[in-house]
Design a protein around this nucleic acid. Structure first.
Length: 397
RNA sequence: GGGUAGGUUGAGCAGGUGGUGAGCUCCGCUGACUGUAGAUCAGCCGUCUUUCGACUGUGGGGGUUCGAUUCCCUCCCUGCCCA
Protein backbone atom coordinates (compact mmCIF):
# COMPACT_ATOMS: atom_id res chain seq x y z
CA UNK A 1 0.00 0.00 0.00
CA UNK A 2 1.10 3.50 -0.74
CA UNK A 3 1.09 5.94 2.12
CA UNK A 4 0.98 9.69 2.12
CA UNK A 5 4.65 9.98 2.92
CA UNK A 6 5.56 7.98 -0.16
CA UNK A 7 3.85 10.43 -2.43
CA UNK A 8 5.05 13.88 -3.01
CA UNK A 9 2.62 16.57 -3.75
CA UNK A 10 -0.23 15.43 -1.50
CA UNK A 11 -2.15 17.74 0.72
CA UNK A 12 -0.30 16.37 3.70
CA UNK A 13 3.01 17.18 2.08
CA UNK A 14 2.04 20.72 1.20
CA UNK A 15 1.55 19.84 -2.44
CA UNK A 16 -0.65 21.12 -5.22
CA UNK A 17 -3.75 21.47 -3.21
CA UNK A 18 -4.39 22.50 0.33
CA UNK A 19 -7.70 22.36 2.07
CA UNK A 20 -8.25 24.36 5.20
CA UNK A 21 -11.38 24.50 7.27
CA UNK A 22 -12.27 28.05 8.18
CA UNK A 23 -15.31 26.88 10.08
CA UNK A 24 -15.54 23.20 11.04
CA UNK A 25 -18.84 21.51 11.72
CA UNK A 26 -20.19 22.56 15.12
CA UNK A 27 -19.54 20.26 18.03
CA UNK A 28 -23.20 20.27 19.05
CA UNK A 29 -24.03 18.03 16.08
CA UNK A 30 -26.74 20.34 14.79
CA UNK A 31 -25.23 19.93 11.32
CA UNK A 32 -22.10 18.61 9.66
CA UNK A 33 -21.99 21.61 7.34
CA UNK A 34 -18.60 23.29 7.30
CA UNK A 35 -16.77 26.09 5.56
CA UNK A 36 -13.51 25.43 3.81
CA UNK A 37 -10.94 26.77 1.47
CA UNK A 38 -9.32 24.90 -1.38
CA UNK A 39 -6.07 26.25 -2.70
CA UNK A 40 -5.04 25.07 -6.18
CA UNK A 41 -2.43 26.07 -8.74
CA UNK A 42 -5.11 28.07 -10.53
CA UNK A 43 -6.55 29.80 -7.55
CA UNK A 44 -8.72 29.60 -4.50
CA UNK A 45 -12.06 27.92 -4.06
CA UNK A 46 -14.45 28.60 -1.20
CA UNK A 47 -16.39 25.53 -0.13
CA UNK A 48 -19.04 24.23 -0.13
CA UNK A 49 -18.78 24.74 -3.87
CA UNK A 50 -20.76 23.78 -6.94
CA UNK A 51 -18.71 23.00 -10.05
CA UNK A 52 -20.45 23.50 -13.41
CA UNK A 53 -19.82 20.64 -15.82
CA UNK A 54 -17.90 21.30 -19.01
CA UNK A 55 -17.61 17.81 -20.43
CA UNK A 56 -16.12 18.74 -23.79
CA UNK A 57 -13.89 21.51 -22.48
CA UNK A 58 -16.83 23.87 -22.55
CA UNK A 59 -19.73 24.47 -20.26
CA UNK A 60 -22.34 24.11 -22.98
CA UNK A 61 -23.51 27.45 -24.39
CA UNK A 62 -21.16 29.56 -22.22
CA UNK A 63 -17.74 31.05 -22.74
CA UNK A 64 -15.21 31.80 -19.98
CA UNK A 65 -16.46 35.38 -19.60
CA UNK A 66 -19.95 34.04 -18.97
CA UNK A 67 -18.54 31.59 -16.45
CA UNK A 68 -16.76 34.35 -14.59
CA UNK A 69 -19.90 36.44 -14.57
CA UNK A 70 -21.96 33.52 -13.36
CA UNK A 71 -19.46 33.14 -10.52
CA UNK A 72 -17.98 29.74 -11.30
CA UNK A 73 -14.98 29.14 -9.06
CA UNK A 74 -13.97 25.82 -10.59
CA UNK A 75 -15.35 23.69 -13.39
CA UNK A 76 -15.28 20.03 -14.33
CA UNK A 77 -14.17 18.52 -17.62
CA UNK A 78 -14.32 14.93 -18.79
CA UNK A 79 -11.36 12.67 -19.40
CA UNK A 80 -13.18 10.14 -21.54
CA UNK A 81 -14.69 12.71 -23.88
CA UNK A 82 -11.50 14.71 -24.33
CA UNK A 83 -9.47 11.56 -24.83
CA UNK A 84 -11.75 10.60 -27.72
CA UNK A 85 -11.95 14.11 -29.11
CA UNK A 86 -9.85 16.13 -29.68
CA UNK A 87 -7.35 13.81 -27.96
CA UNK A 88 -5.47 14.48 -24.74
CA UNK A 89 -2.12 14.57 -26.49
CA UNK A 90 -3.32 17.25 -28.83
CA UNK A 91 -4.53 19.31 -25.88
CA UNK A 92 -1.17 18.80 -24.20
CA UNK A 93 0.66 19.95 -27.34
CA UNK A 94 -1.56 23.01 -27.42
CA UNK A 95 -0.53 23.99 -23.93
CA UNK A 96 -2.88 22.06 -21.70
CA UNK A 97 -6.57 22.23 -20.99
CA UNK A 98 -6.60 25.62 -19.26
CA UNK A 99 -4.97 27.30 -22.20
CA UNK A 100 -6.92 25.27 -24.73
CA UNK A 101 -10.28 26.41 -23.38
CA UNK A 102 -9.08 29.76 -22.08
CA UNK A 103 -10.18 29.09 -18.53
CA UNK A 104 -7.76 30.43 -15.96
CA UNK A 105 -9.34 29.03 -12.83
CA UNK A 106 -9.23 25.52 -11.38
CA UNK A 107 -10.37 22.50 -13.36
CA UNK A 108 -11.27 19.11 -12.02
CA UNK A 109 -11.26 16.26 -14.52
CA UNK A 110 -13.60 13.35 -14.12
CA UNK A 111 -11.95 10.06 -14.92
CA UNK A 112 -14.44 8.48 -17.26
CA UNK A 113 -15.68 6.14 -14.55
CA UNK A 114 -19.18 7.49 -14.86
CA UNK A 115 -19.23 6.53 -18.52
CA UNK A 116 -19.00 2.94 -17.32
CA UNK A 117 -22.59 3.49 -16.30
CA UNK A 118 -23.83 6.09 -18.75
CA UNK A 119 -22.59 4.39 -21.90
CA UNK A 120 -24.59 1.32 -21.06
CA UNK A 121 -24.29 -1.28 -23.80
CA UNK A 122 -21.18 0.37 -25.19
CA UNK A 123 -18.81 -0.90 -22.57
CA UNK A 124 -17.48 -3.97 -20.81
CA UNK A 125 -15.59 -4.04 -17.51
CA UNK A 126 -12.95 -6.44 -16.28
CA UNK A 127 -10.25 -6.28 -13.65
CA UNK A 128 -7.80 -4.73 -16.05
CA UNK A 129 -10.06 -1.81 -16.99
CA UNK A 130 -12.98 -0.76 -19.12
CA UNK A 131 -13.46 -1.44 -22.80
CA UNK A 132 -15.52 1.31 -24.36
CA UNK A 133 -17.02 1.50 -27.76
CA UNK A 134 -16.72 5.14 -28.76
CA UNK A 135 -20.06 6.91 -28.87
CA UNK A 136 -18.62 8.97 -31.72
CA UNK A 137 -17.50 6.36 -34.23
CA UNK A 138 -17.97 2.98 -32.59
CA UNK A 139 -14.24 2.30 -32.32
CA UNK A 140 -13.00 0.21 -29.40
CA UNK A 141 -10.94 1.76 -26.62
CA UNK A 142 -9.44 0.05 -23.64
CA UNK A 143 -9.27 2.30 -20.63
CA UNK A 144 -7.20 1.31 -17.62
CA UNK A 145 -6.67 3.18 -14.35
CA UNK A 146 -3.16 4.00 -15.55
CA UNK A 147 -4.54 5.31 -18.81
CA UNK A 148 -7.12 7.45 -17.03
CA UNK A 149 -4.35 9.05 -14.99
CA UNK A 150 -2.07 9.54 -17.99
CA UNK A 151 -4.83 11.30 -19.88
CA UNK A 152 -5.63 13.58 -16.95
CA UNK A 153 -1.96 14.41 -16.52
CA UNK A 154 -1.76 15.34 -20.17
CA UNK A 155 -4.81 17.54 -19.81
CA UNK A 156 -3.16 19.24 -16.85
CA UNK A 157 -6.21 19.60 -14.63
CA UNK A 158 -5.75 20.90 -11.09
CA UNK A 159 -7.56 17.93 -9.67
CA UNK A 160 -7.60 14.46 -11.20
CA UNK A 161 -9.92 11.69 -10.15
CA UNK A 162 -9.46 7.92 -10.04
CA UNK A 163 -11.07 5.59 -12.50
CA UNK A 164 -13.86 3.83 -10.65
CA UNK A 165 -16.76 1.52 -11.31
CA UNK A 166 -20.03 2.98 -10.14
CA UNK A 167 -22.99 0.64 -9.96
CA UNK A 168 -26.38 1.85 -11.10
CA UNK A 169 -28.75 1.46 -8.13
CA UNK A 170 -31.54 -0.16 -10.11
CA UNK A 171 -31.03 -3.83 -10.80
CA UNK A 172 -27.85 -4.01 -8.79
CA UNK A 173 -27.33 -7.06 -6.68
CA UNK A 174 -25.21 -6.98 -3.56
CA UNK A 175 -22.70 -9.23 -5.26
CA UNK A 176 -22.40 -6.83 -8.19
CA UNK A 177 -21.93 -3.87 -5.87
CA UNK A 178 -19.32 -5.74 -3.85
CA UNK A 179 -17.39 -6.70 -6.97
CA UNK A 180 -17.47 -3.18 -8.43
CA UNK A 181 -16.47 -1.65 -5.12
CA UNK A 182 -13.58 -4.07 -4.67
CA UNK A 183 -12.44 -3.33 -8.20
CA UNK A 184 -12.69 0.40 -7.54
CA UNK A 185 -10.35 -0.07 -4.58
CA UNK A 186 -7.79 -1.95 -6.64
CA UNK A 187 -7.98 0.67 -9.34
CA UNK A 188 -7.55 3.40 -6.71
CA UNK A 189 -4.17 1.96 -5.76
CA UNK A 190 -3.19 1.62 -9.40
CA UNK A 191 -4.16 5.24 -10.02
CA UNK A 192 -2.05 6.38 -7.11
CA UNK A 193 0.89 4.37 -8.33
CA UNK A 194 0.53 5.80 -11.84
CA UNK A 195 0.17 9.39 -10.74
CA UNK A 196 3.37 11.38 -11.28
CA UNK A 197 2.45 15.06 -11.45
CA UNK A 198 3.26 16.83 -8.18
CA UNK A 199 1.34 19.90 -9.32
CA UNK A 200 -1.86 17.91 -9.80
CA UNK A 201 -4.05 16.72 -6.95
CA UNK A 202 -5.65 13.28 -7.05
CA UNK A 203 -8.94 12.31 -5.47
CA UNK A 204 -10.04 8.76 -4.64
CA UNK A 205 -13.62 7.58 -5.03
CA UNK A 206 -15.77 5.77 -2.50
CA UNK A 207 -18.33 3.34 -3.88
CA UNK A 208 -20.45 0.72 -2.12
CA UNK A 209 -23.87 1.37 -3.60
CA UNK A 210 -26.62 1.54 -1.04
CA UNK A 211 -25.19 -1.28 1.05
CA UNK A 212 -24.25 0.35 4.33
CA UNK A 213 -21.44 -2.03 5.25
CA UNK A 214 -19.92 -1.81 1.75
CA UNK A 215 -20.13 1.99 1.85
CA UNK A 216 -18.42 2.02 5.21
CA UNK A 217 -15.72 -0.39 4.10
CA UNK A 218 -15.15 1.58 0.92
CA UNK A 219 -14.87 4.80 2.87
CA UNK A 220 -12.26 3.27 5.16
CA UNK A 221 -10.26 1.81 2.28
CA UNK A 222 -10.22 5.01 0.21
CA UNK A 223 -9.55 7.20 3.24
CA UNK A 224 -6.58 5.04 4.16
CA UNK A 225 -4.88 5.96 0.88
CA UNK A 226 -2.93 9.19 0.38
CA UNK A 227 -5.40 10.98 -1.81
CA UNK A 228 -5.85 14.73 -1.73
CA UNK A 229 -9.59 14.46 -1.46
CA UNK A 230 -12.39 11.94 -1.12
CA UNK A 231 -15.08 11.58 -3.75
CA UNK A 232 -18.32 9.86 -2.94
CA UNK A 233 -19.60 8.24 -6.09
CA UNK A 234 -22.57 6.25 -7.22
CA UNK A 235 -25.18 8.47 -5.57
CA UNK A 236 -26.57 10.43 -8.50
CA UNK A 237 -28.71 7.68 -9.91
CA UNK A 238 -32.29 6.78 -9.23
CA UNK A 239 -32.04 6.27 -5.48
CA UNK A 240 -34.29 8.35 -3.24
CA UNK A 241 -33.06 11.41 -1.34
CA UNK A 242 -33.47 9.43 1.87
CA UNK A 243 -31.29 6.62 0.54
CA UNK A 244 -28.65 9.13 -0.50
CA UNK A 245 -28.68 10.80 2.85
CA UNK A 246 -28.40 7.45 4.59
CA UNK A 247 -25.35 6.61 2.49
CA UNK A 248 -23.75 9.97 3.28
CA UNK A 249 -24.46 9.45 6.96
CA UNK A 250 -22.48 6.24 6.72
CA UNK A 251 -19.51 7.80 4.91
CA UNK A 252 -19.03 11.20 6.48
CA UNK A 253 -18.80 10.22 10.16
CA UNK A 254 -15.95 7.88 9.20
CA UNK A 255 -14.18 10.94 7.76
CA UNK A 256 -14.88 13.19 10.73
CA UNK A 257 -11.22 13.51 11.67
CA UNK A 258 -10.04 13.46 8.06
CA UNK A 259 -8.62 16.81 6.88
CA UNK A 260 -9.45 16.31 3.22
CA UNK A 261 -12.28 17.74 1.14
CA UNK A 262 -15.35 15.58 0.48
CA UNK A 263 -16.80 15.64 -2.99
CA UNK A 264 -20.22 14.20 -3.76
CA UNK A 265 -20.19 13.37 -7.44
CA UNK A 266 -23.07 14.23 -9.70
CA UNK A 267 -25.66 15.97 -7.57
CA UNK A 268 -27.00 19.36 -8.50
CA UNK A 269 -30.55 20.21 -7.48
CA UNK A 270 -30.80 22.95 -4.86
CA UNK A 271 -32.56 20.65 -2.41
CA UNK A 272 -29.96 17.92 -2.92
CA UNK A 273 -27.10 20.34 -2.30
CA UNK A 274 -28.63 21.75 0.85
CA UNK A 275 -29.14 18.29 2.28
CA UNK A 276 -25.70 17.07 1.28
CA UNK A 277 -23.97 20.15 2.73
CA UNK A 278 -25.85 19.42 5.92
CA UNK A 279 -24.46 15.89 5.72
CA UNK A 280 -20.94 17.32 5.50
CA UNK A 281 -20.12 17.54 1.78
CA UNK A 282 -17.76 20.24 0.45
CA UNK A 283 -17.86 19.88 -3.33
CA UNK A 284 -20.49 19.12 -5.96
CA UNK A 285 -20.90 18.91 -9.68
CA UNK A 286 -23.86 18.18 -11.90
CA UNK A 287 -25.10 18.70 -15.42
CA UNK A 288 -28.57 19.25 -14.04
CA UNK A 289 -28.82 23.06 -13.88
CA UNK A 290 -27.37 23.49 -17.35
CA UNK A 291 -29.24 20.64 -19.01
CA UNK A 292 -32.54 21.53 -17.45
CA UNK A 293 -32.02 25.13 -18.56
CA UNK A 294 -31.40 24.10 -22.16
CA UNK A 295 -34.60 22.11 -22.01
CA UNK A 296 -36.64 25.10 -20.86
CA UNK A 297 -36.79 24.81 -17.09
CA UNK A 298 -35.48 27.71 -15.02
CA UNK A 299 -34.98 27.65 -11.28
CA UNK A 300 -36.46 30.16 -8.87
CA UNK A 301 -36.26 30.61 -5.11
CA UNK A 302 -39.72 29.11 -4.76
CA UNK A 303 -39.52 26.38 -7.36
CA UNK A 304 -39.16 26.50 -11.09
CA UNK A 305 -40.86 27.49 -14.31
CA UNK A 306 -40.96 25.74 -17.66
CA UNK A 307 -40.68 28.38 -20.36
CA UNK A 308 -42.35 26.01 -22.80
CA UNK A 309 -45.63 26.69 -21.02
CA UNK A 310 -47.75 29.00 -23.13
CA UNK A 311 -48.58 31.28 -20.22
CA UNK A 312 -45.13 32.86 -20.40
CA UNK A 313 -45.56 34.12 -23.95
CA UNK A 314 -47.12 37.32 -22.66
CA UNK A 315 -45.23 37.60 -19.39
CA UNK A 316 -43.21 40.84 -19.32
CA UNK A 317 -41.52 40.06 -15.99
CA UNK A 318 -37.93 38.86 -15.77
CA UNK A 319 -37.44 35.19 -14.98
CA UNK A 320 -36.54 36.09 -11.41
CA UNK A 321 -37.05 39.54 -9.97
CA UNK A 322 -33.78 40.86 -8.58
CA UNK A 323 -31.58 38.16 -10.11
CA UNK A 324 -28.17 39.44 -11.19
CA UNK A 325 -27.82 37.15 -14.22
CA UNK A 326 -27.71 38.55 -17.75
CA UNK A 327 -31.03 36.95 -18.67
CA UNK A 328 -32.86 38.57 -15.78
CA UNK A 329 -31.07 41.91 -16.10
CA UNK A 330 -32.25 42.54 -19.65
CA UNK A 331 -34.98 40.22 -20.81
CA UNK A 332 -38.54 39.18 -20.11
CA UNK A 333 -39.96 35.71 -19.69
CA UNK A 334 -41.92 36.41 -22.88
CA UNK A 335 -38.70 37.03 -24.81
CA UNK A 336 -37.02 33.90 -23.48
CA UNK A 337 -40.15 31.84 -24.22
CA UNK A 338 -40.03 33.20 -27.75
CA UNK A 339 -36.33 32.39 -28.19
CA UNK A 340 -36.96 28.85 -26.97
CA UNK A 341 -39.79 28.28 -29.45
CA UNK A 342 -37.86 29.88 -32.27
CA UNK A 343 -34.99 27.52 -31.47
CA UNK A 344 -32.65 30.49 -31.17
CA UNK A 345 -29.16 29.82 -29.83
CA UNK A 346 -29.27 32.81 -27.50
CA UNK A 347 -31.86 30.97 -25.44
CA UNK A 348 -29.40 28.30 -24.38
CA UNK A 349 -26.86 30.82 -23.22
CA UNK A 350 -29.32 32.97 -21.28
CA UNK A 351 -31.09 30.01 -19.70
CA UNK A 352 -27.81 28.39 -18.69
CA UNK A 353 -26.55 31.66 -17.24
CA UNK A 354 -29.66 31.93 -15.12
CA UNK A 355 -29.65 28.44 -13.64
CA UNK A 356 -25.93 28.44 -12.94
CA UNK A 357 -26.15 31.88 -11.38
CA UNK A 358 -29.08 30.71 -9.33
CA UNK A 359 -27.27 27.64 -8.04
CA UNK A 360 -23.96 29.37 -7.45
CA UNK A 361 -25.69 32.15 -5.54
CA UNK A 362 -27.57 29.52 -3.60
CA UNK A 363 -24.23 27.98 -2.59
CA UNK A 364 -22.97 31.42 -1.57
CA UNK A 365 -26.04 31.81 0.60
CA UNK A 366 -25.31 28.42 2.15
CA UNK A 367 -21.74 29.52 2.88
CA UNK A 368 -22.82 32.70 4.57
CA UNK A 369 -25.38 30.84 6.63
CA UNK A 370 -22.65 28.48 7.77
CA UNK A 371 -20.41 31.43 8.55
CA UNK A 372 -23.15 33.06 10.60
CA UNK A 373 -24.06 29.81 12.32
CA UNK A 374 -27.57 29.90 10.90
CA UNK A 375 -27.27 26.98 8.51
CA UNK A 376 -29.67 24.70 10.44
CA UNK A 377 -32.30 27.44 10.16
CA UNK A 378 -31.76 27.59 6.42
CA UNK A 379 -32.30 23.85 6.17
CA UNK A 380 -35.44 24.04 8.26
CA UNK A 381 -36.77 26.95 6.24
CA UNK A 382 -36.35 25.06 2.98
CA UNK A 383 -37.83 21.80 4.19
CA UNK A 384 -40.80 23.73 5.57
CA UNK A 385 -41.25 25.42 2.23
CA UNK A 386 -41.16 22.08 0.46
CA UNK A 387 -43.71 20.61 2.87
CA UNK A 388 -45.96 23.61 2.61
CA UNK A 389 -49.36 22.85 1.07
CA UNK A 390 -49.65 26.32 -0.42
CA UNK A 391 -47.96 25.81 -3.79
CA UNK A 392 -50.78 23.66 -5.09
CA UNK A 393 -49.25 22.99 -8.49
CA UNK A 394 -46.32 20.99 -7.32
CA UNK A 395 -42.90 22.53 -7.62
CA UNK A 396 -44.05 25.24 -10.02
CA UNK A 397 -43.79 28.93 -9.47
C1' G B 1 -63.18 30.64 -72.21
C1' G B 2 -60.33 25.74 -73.36
C1' G B 3 -56.98 22.07 -71.35
C1' U B 4 -54.67 19.79 -67.25
C1' A B 5 -53.32 18.48 -62.16
C1' G B 6 -55.35 18.89 -57.60
C1' G B 7 -58.80 19.94 -52.87
C1' U B 8 -57.50 14.28 -46.82
C1' U B 9 -57.86 16.05 -39.17
C1' G B 10 -53.93 24.00 -37.67
C1' A B 11 -49.74 23.42 -41.88
C1' G B 12 -47.33 19.99 -45.31
C1' C B 13 -48.06 15.09 -46.90
C1' A B 14 -49.10 9.47 -47.26
C1' G B 15 -52.90 6.27 -48.44
C1' G B 16 -57.15 4.86 -50.79
C1' U B 17 -58.96 2.37 -59.01
C1' G B 18 -67.12 -0.16 -54.48
C1' G B 19 -66.32 -3.45 -48.55
C1' U B 20 -64.91 -0.12 -41.50
C1' G B 21 -59.25 6.29 -44.16
C1' A B 22 -57.57 9.09 -37.35
C1' G B 23 -50.91 7.07 -40.58
C1' C B 24 -46.38 10.39 -40.92
C1' U B 25 -43.65 15.11 -40.31
C1' C B 26 -44.03 20.00 -38.59
C1' C B 27 -46.68 23.38 -35.43
C1' G B 28 -49.12 23.28 -30.74
C1' C B 29 -49.87 21.39 -25.37
C1' U B 30 -47.65 18.95 -21.12
C1' G B 31 -43.97 16.30 -18.54
C1' A B 32 -39.03 14.39 -17.58
C1' C B 33 -33.88 15.43 -17.04
C1' U B 34 -28.52 14.92 -11.29
C1' G B 35 -19.68 12.65 -12.03
C1' U B 36 -23.54 15.11 -20.37
C1' A B 37 -23.97 9.44 -26.46
C1' G B 38 -29.07 14.87 -23.92
C1' A B 39 -30.03 22.63 -27.59
C1' U B 40 -32.52 15.85 -25.70
C1' C B 41 -36.35 12.42 -24.68
C1' A B 42 -41.46 10.94 -23.61
C1' G B 43 -46.84 11.54 -23.73
C1' C B 44 -50.93 14.12 -25.98
C1' C B 45 -52.37 16.56 -30.49
C1' G B 46 -60.94 15.59 -34.97
C1' U B 47 -65.32 15.44 -31.06
C1' C B 48 -67.29 13.11 -26.52
C1' U B 49 -65.26 9.91 -22.57
C1' U B 50 -60.89 9.10 -16.61
C1' U B 51 -60.50 4.35 -19.27
C1' C B 52 -62.85 0.95 -22.42
C1' G B 53 -65.14 2.86 -26.21
C1' A B 54 -68.61 5.77 -29.14
C1' C B 55 -69.12 9.32 -32.95
C1' U B 56 -67.58 12.44 -36.97
C1' G B 57 -64.43 13.13 -40.98
C1' U B 58 -61.50 12.39 -47.84
C1' G B 59 -64.08 20.76 -50.92
C1' G B 60 -70.06 21.68 -51.13
C1' G B 61 -74.67 19.58 -52.87
C1' G B 62 -77.15 15.65 -55.22
C1' G B 63 -77.37 10.61 -57.49
C1' U B 64 -76.36 5.17 -58.26
C1' U B 65 -75.59 1.14 -54.52
C1' C B 66 -76.87 -3.33 -49.30
C1' G B 67 -72.50 -0.19 -48.89
C1' A B 68 -69.20 5.69 -52.02
C1' U B 69 -62.87 8.60 -50.53
C1' U B 70 -63.51 5.48 -54.94
C1' C B 71 -68.63 5.49 -59.95
C1' C B 72 -72.13 9.48 -62.12
C1' C B 73 -74.14 14.74 -62.21
C1' U B 74 -73.44 19.62 -60.61
C1' C B 75 -71.23 23.68 -58.15
C1' C B 76 -67.02 25.99 -55.57
C1' C B 77 -61.76 26.67 -54.82
C1' U B 78 -56.26 26.24 -56.09
C1' G B 79 -51.77 25.44 -59.29
C1' C B 80 -49.90 25.11 -64.21
C1' C B 81 -50.49 25.45 -69.73
C1' C B 82 -53.15 27.62 -73.92
C1' A B 83 -56.25 31.51 -75.58
Amino acid sequence: MITASQRTGTAAAGGPLSFTLSRPAPADGSTRARLGHLSTPHGEVATPVFMPVGTNATVKALDPDDLHEVGAQIILANTYHLYLRPGHQRIERLGGLHRFMAWDRPILTDSGGFQVVSLGELRAVDDEGVTFRSHLDGSLHHFTPEHAIAVQQALGSDIAVCLDQPVPPHASTRAAVAEATQRTHEWAERCLAAHRRPEQALFGIVQGGLEEDLRAESTRVIASLPFDGICIGGLAGDETPAQRRAALDVCVPLLAEDPRPRYLMGLGSPADLLDAVDAGIDMFDSVLPARVARNGTLWLPDGRINLRNSRFLDDPAPVQEGCRCRACRSFSRAYLAHLLRADELLFYRLATCHNLTFLIDFMARIRSAIAEGTFPELVREHSARRASPIPSEGPAE
